[in-house]
Write a protein that binds this DNA or RNA. Structure first.
Lengths: 251, 251
DNA sequence: CTTGACCCTGACGCCACGTCAGCCTCTACC
DNA sequence: GGTAGAGGCTGACGTGGCGTCAGGGTCAAG
């Protein structure tokens, strides 16, 4: 047997010596002993310790780990699901805490670094718009979109919002009613969608439209936006857009 | 003076009686005493306690709070920034933990929970999810995203919504304050954004992230979404994401 | 035989309270 | 005046996952 002393094992596992002694004390990772009472770690012990550390990295307590290691698989699945739930609420809590901290930072009067906004904001818009242009201005869609939206005011944006909301409502109504995405009604909504983009932003071909549809399902934020409106709407709208493109270009 | 006994103060502040006694003992929130040694809380004490609880909600230790309450404003700003940094790394750690848990759950052979869900809705989801898969399933991002989101329920989507809202707020706050998109704070938010996608949807490399940023500025609906949150946010976030990717891959 | 590196056990400290145990005070009712 | 019950008080111990001594044993090198 090629066993190693505790310091080497600790280095190998990237934990402290104290930690290994503690695990030994509570019987979580038992160590062998040599003639003079020194702990010795072999492959088995290291393997077991690594498993323990893996559970620990998931945030389980040592007591929970003891149960996990002795229990059966169904028990594990349940524990994992519970733990995932706990982690999520923990993430929520920390996220809110970070919000509060950021809120506090703003309120502090002496965080007055940089800009006096009045002029700042307008310049800022231009600044980043220009940056964006330099980086991605070569795509025609962006150029045209930027050109048109430049002249839009509050009234126009309100119209756009209202129209978008209307289209999304129409689509989610169809989805809820169980109408197939290949149904004419669904494809009509998709066509409305395309025309809306065409009107407000840039010439939207069927090819461009299906490319957008790809984004709707593959980009998480899009999915989320549509998920907020109705469950499964992103997939539904994508399917309708594709069906519509097929109908228009081939049928 | 209209003072109230400890139980009422505890109810008012939504903490335990023990907590108030502890705060009294360590001199953090000192209580008045009546003739027979009972603690009494007036407006001043309640106000002070609320301030303490606010700091506590941000994750400061009681010792730190003692310093914050006695220190000057510049000290506070520094402490808040440090705390924000700590919270971010804490969020990272928990996010990784959640990743590991989810990874474990998948590996388990008997994850046979599947659908007992009302059939109708589930079938609908599956139907269009499968269609989407056939059309765009070749992209890894979509595959991974679909696989993960399949198991998400209301709680998960709520978490995602909360996290996304938090990040967007953080970004728009910075934009409003006039912080440059190349500033560390802005890049930190961009990194948060990337990690959020990484956690909830699919492995998001810096390259993938910059590709997403392109979409944010060039796609009208994205622009509109961000325009609703804050004027110029799409461009700002894109710039921050690009800067962050540069920092991480080159710096 | 000394030196210094490593090992051992046992004990206390930490943080923000929860949870007794044992006793005191006030109000309401008899 | 007695008594019951609600609420108050202090002091002490427990929690988890170790870090950090204190006091001592073991081992290889010089």
């Amino acid at each position: 047997m090629d066993t190693i002393p505790i310091a080497e094992a600790a280095a190998e596992l990237d934990v402290s010596v104290r930690t290994l002694r503690y695990y030994d004390a509570i019987g979580l990772v038992a160590a062998q002993r040599d003639g003079s009472g020194y702990r010795r770690y072999g492959d088995g012990e290291l393997h077991r310790a690594r498993a323990v550390l893996q559970w620990r990295a998931m945030g389980f307590t040592l007591e929970e780990i003891r149960l996990l290691e002795s229990g059966d698989t169904s028990h594990r699945a349940a524990a994992l699901r519970r733990r995932a739930q706990e982690l999520r609420s923990e993430l929520d809590r920390l996220g809110s805490a970070l919000d509060s901290v950021n809120g506090m930072l703003e309120q502090l009067p002496e965080t007055t670094q940089a800009g006096i906004q009045k002029e700042g904001e307008a310049d800022m818009d231009n600044e980043y718009a220009e940056e964006a242009y330099e980086r991605w201005g070569n795509t025609d869609a962006y150029k045209e979109s930027a050109r048109r939206t430049a002249s839009y005011g509050e009234t126009e944006w309100n119209s756009i919002r209202a129209e978008t909301a209307r289209i999304e409502r129409a689509a989610s109504d169809l989805l809820r009613e169980g109408v197939s995405a290949e149904d004419e009604a669904a494809m009509d909504v998709a066509e409305d969608h395309r025309l809306s983009i065409d009107r407000w932003f840039y010439p939207c071909s069927y090819e461009m439209h299906t490319a957008l549809a790809t984004t709707y399902v593959s980009d998480p934020l899009f999915r989320q936006h549509y998920e907020d409106v109705a469950v499964g709407l992103a997939d539904y709208l994508s399917a309708a857009i594709t069906a519509n493109a097929l109908r228009m270009t081939q049928g």
